[in-house]
Design a protein around this nucleic acid. Structure first.
Lengths: 260, 260
DNA sequence: AAGAGAGTTCCAAATTTCGGAACCTCGTCC
DNA sequence: GGACGAGGTTCCGAAATTTGGAACTCTCTT
């Protein structure tokens, strides 16, 4: 295990729920011996990835993590373009918008556009969720080949919320539906009472893919309102696909024939 | 040189001016041999710190840098408390506010509060500037002991803008003035025509220190307006010092007597 | 078909990392 | 005061990684 892997393992122990950790916490969470933990924490601190509270001696993410986070913002043409469009849709509909990327079988929230409706934001940026259980997560998966999807789903199919696909067969049925209709819906999955619709956008230039979704309270919306969201999303998808040169058609053909 | 140091050296090559780099760029910037560069880039890519554009094969900061950046936000009680106050002052005065921290002899911008006045934001978050050449940078330095300041300034005194202290003696004169008056001013230094006033805030609990400044166009402000900024800042400083338990008095005594 | 440019892989030597054990250093309890 | 334990650091030989030159692969270009 390289120094880098170790460093990342430790950094991943921190989260908004656990913003700072003691030596013992890190030892428990990583399961490494004392001496290794001591050395690793020291080197992370020395290089700026961690800071240590001089009083409590607890560790927290350091200045360098902030600087690294800034770097990522530099490469966000696709994301910021999508964010601009999403902002308009959210302003018109009052609902909350999400932009996320796929990482393995999880998705990571990159941006949030709070709506005017009083639905509290539940997935802050950085949040990881199984992609199988969200509308835009499934929309992203649907653009991969079947083998690729199979490779991403863990060997033992994970336990998901009631309305999410409960096994691989159900998942593939959803994939087919998304590929056919071009939209992905979710209701009462990751969060009770919350529904969403989403789609996946792929850059023709870089091939990078993001998932865009609009989320709302199921009880507080009418079917007509949800149909309106669907129309808004379809329009945004069409516009963004044109702007980014999304190779959707070729992709669909490739998936169908099984070519890589 | 450990894997971690190498990784950071490479990541530091990226910036908003250079959001993506080719293999050759990285080789040139780090001065490492081909084989090492190849291996390092691969491992950074594998662990998610870098992404590679499949088409151009260029590298850019990866999803993990985004996630790490999010972590830093988790520990920002002091910073967000200061940001809230700064927001109010900026709303009242129309000027632009900055929050920064000290790192060696440089400061790093953490937060910006854009004002309503049409002064373009010139230092985005993440920006590094010699602390000697900014109002809040000097305010932070002034709260260190003289030996500590001397240790931070590079052996050969750096070339700074016209109105910044040009040598160590001038710097120490400024330090004394800041310690005496409690405020730090800058005009026409890092950026032509831009002035600022700032102070340093230290948490009584954690001992961490941040610099807070309000920045404005020198031409477009009157002396009265600048005096108003000074009053606003003094009020904010007093309030924040109370809230955070800033040990300013003890510090001042320590610096004076040279105790550590 | 040869050559150049851009990267990758190989390998033995040099450097780091590993983890158990001994060793600190406080604060606490008797 | 002294023993104790929690929390953490340092030491050291064994094991694993990293290094960088050289050979090799790929992909263009001429």
């Amino acid at each position: 295990m390289s120094a880098l892997t170790n460093a990342i393992e430790i950094l991943r122990c921190f989260s908004s729920a656990r913003p700072d950790l003691s030596f013992a916490d890190v030892m428990a969470l990583t399961g490494k011996p004392k001496s290794s933990t001591s050395r690793l924490l020291r080197s992370l601190r020395d290089c700026g990835l961690l800071e240590q509270d001089p009083h409590t001696r607890r560790y927290r993410p350091g200045l360098l993590t902030f600087e690294l986070g800034r770097l990522h913002r530099a490469h966000d043409d696709l994301i910021s373009m999508a964010e601009r469009e999403l902002r308009e849709v959210c302003a018109r509909t009052g609902h909350t918008g999400y932009i996320a990327v796929l990482d393995g079988y999880e998705q990571v929230v990159l941006r949030i556009v709070p709506g005017s409706n009083p639905l509290r934001v539940v997935n802050p940026p950085g949040q990881r969720t199984p992609a199988l259980a969200t509308s835009n997560g499934r929309a992203m998966l649907a653009r991969l080949s079947d083998e690729d999807i199979r490779a991403r789903v863990p060997a033992t199919y994970p336990k998901l919320p009631r309305n999410s696909p409960q096994n691989f067969k159900q998942l593939m049925a959803r994939m087919d539906e998304i590929r056919r209709t071009g939209v992905s819906e979710a209701a009462d999955e990751s969060i009770e009472g919350v529904g969403s619709q989403g789609f996946a956008l792929k850059s023709g230039e870089t091939g990078e893919m993001i998932g865009i979704a609009v989320s709302y309270s199921v009880q507080a919306t009418t079917a007509a309102e949800r149909a309106n969201v669907r129309r808004e999303l379809a329009a945004m998808a069409a516009k963004l696909r044109r702007m980014t040169g999304d190779p959707l058609e070729q992709d669909a053909a490739r998936v169908k024939t099984g070519t890589r």
